[in-house]
Simulated assay, not measured.
Amino acid sequence: MDFLACLFRFPKDDPAQATRARHSLMSLVSSLTIIVFTLYCSYAGLFRLGLRELAWFILLAILVHAVFFAMICSGRNLRLADPSLTLPQMYVSILWMMFILYFIDHVRGAMLVLFMIIFVFGIFRLGLKQFIGVAIFALAAYAIVIALLIYFHPDSINPRIEMLQWVLLAMVLPWFAVIGAYISNIRHTLRQKNKDLEKALAKIEQLVSHDELTGTYSRRSFLDALRRELARAERENRPFCLALFDLDHFKSINDRYGHLAGDDVLRSFADCVQQEVRQVDYFARYGGEEFALLLADTEINAATDILERIRARVESQPFPHVEWNVTSSIGAAQYQPGETLNQLIGRADQALYAAKSEGRNRVKQAAGSIRQ
């Protein structure tokens, strides 16, 4: 039972597989429609097989469709070149139709209309060559059925009517194949455009959330993260710290070596800092030569140790184009309960200003808690 439950589990976690499973179920429902019509013909005395023999063939047809559905739900179809199994299901449905056309009497012309139901499923997947191949297979199979009927049951067939029906089917199926392939190509084009649109949206999201020059988070994205962390701190009473960085004498680098060199220094600085921060932290370019770092679940003393390590690494790091050691001033503030976002940023900014006033290349903690 567990095996069957696993085998027929609807693949909700995979949209593509879920779509294939739905198409397979639709194919089964279409076959059931044909089966109901066949049973009615048997009841009306228009089917040469007895009801018991017919029931075995019906059971076989249902089992075959169940196998297709089980392959999709179990993921075994993914090993095949065509994981949708569209062509095999269409060929099986055509063979089932040929079985019915051979044993049914007087209403074969009406049954031919049901070919359209089979070909509709090709719209989901098939190209023009595949559609034409299926049409040729159907016409050849129907020609064999006519030949077998003429040979074994000549009294149950009017060759001229059957040939007329075959010619009509030969005219309709290729044209239907062309239309089906055209619709399939439109669906494929739309699907590809949707993928391109998703990529474009992801690119736009990347540009909005990240700084193009340094690859760090943008100021807007950083402020959003800071608001979320502040709300979490108020809700769960967890500490976090905000640090503001300023590259010392960065204007001199731009004036002496040019702005392209300054851009290289900013990129190198960002890479240097990101090698020291944790995955839970949030590092961003705040503006110009200023950067910001959100240290989650960290108190001020631990944050100061981390920032001091970053400061020392930056000082010892060789930077492109620059002949002297590049240094940074850092101001840090721990969030205090009841503090607003602007107050937290203001205290960190004051600490940064103090670090620069006291000689630069140092880490400075902000003043203590705000009094309520």
Rank of each mutant, 00 (worst) to 15 (best):
208 V>I: 13
216 T>G: 07
149 L>R: 15
176 F>L: 12
192 Q>N: 10
159 P>N: 08
140 A>D: 05
232 R>D: 06
147 A>L: 13
228 R>Y: 10
232 R>Q: 10
150 I>G: 07
156 S>A: 12
165 Q>V: 02
169 L>E: 03
201 L>P: 07
185 N>L: 14
160 R>F: 09
168 L>G: 08
230 L>Y: 02
190 L>C: 07
184 S>K: 00
149 L>C: 11
141 A>S: 14
204 I>Q: 10
203 K>A: 08
166 W>E: 09
144 I>R: 06
169 L>H: 02
168 L>R: 13
207 L>R: 06
213 L>N: 04
165 Q>R: 14
150 I>A: 11
202 A>P: 12
219 R>P: 00
152 F>L: 09
214 T>W: 05
148 L>N: 11
205 E>C: 06
206 Q>M: 11
230 L>D: 01
190 L>N: 14
229 E>T: 10
194 N>K: 10
236 E>W: 12
195 K>Q: 15
151 Y>D: 11
149 L>W: 02
161 I>S: 10
178 V>Q: 03
164 L>D: 13
223 L>H: 07
205 E>R: 14
193 K>V: 13
205 E>Y: 04
227 R>A: 09
202 A>N: 15
175 W>C: 07
162 E>L: 04
143 A>D: 10
146 I>A: 12
181 A>K: 05
163 M>L: 15
155 D>L: 15
210 H>P: 02
232 R>C: 04
230 L>Q: 14
166 W>T: 01
195 K>V: 13
183 I>H: 08
211 D>R: 01
149 L>S: 13
183 I>S: 10
155 D>C: 04
190 L>E: 11
198 E>A: 14
218 S>W: 02
166 W>C: 08
232 R>K: 11
214 T>R: 02
212 E>D: 03
215 G>A: 04
233 A>I: 03
187 R>W: 09
144 I>A: 09
162 E>P: 04
235 R>D: 10
180 G>C: 01
176 F>P: 00
226 L>G: 04
207 L>W: 04
234 E>F: 03
181 A>N: 05
175 W>T: 00
183 I>C: 12
167 V>G: 08
161 I>R: 08
167 V>E: 05
155 D>G: 14
199 K>W: 03
208 V>L: 12
161 I>V: 12
193 K>H: 14
156 S>H: 12
231 A>H: 13
166 W>P: 10
213 L>M: 06
176 F>K: 01
167 V>F: 07
170 A>V: 02
141 A>T: 08
224 D>Y: 08
161 I>F: 07
170 A>Q: 01
162 E>M: 08
171 M>K: 00
166 W>I: 00
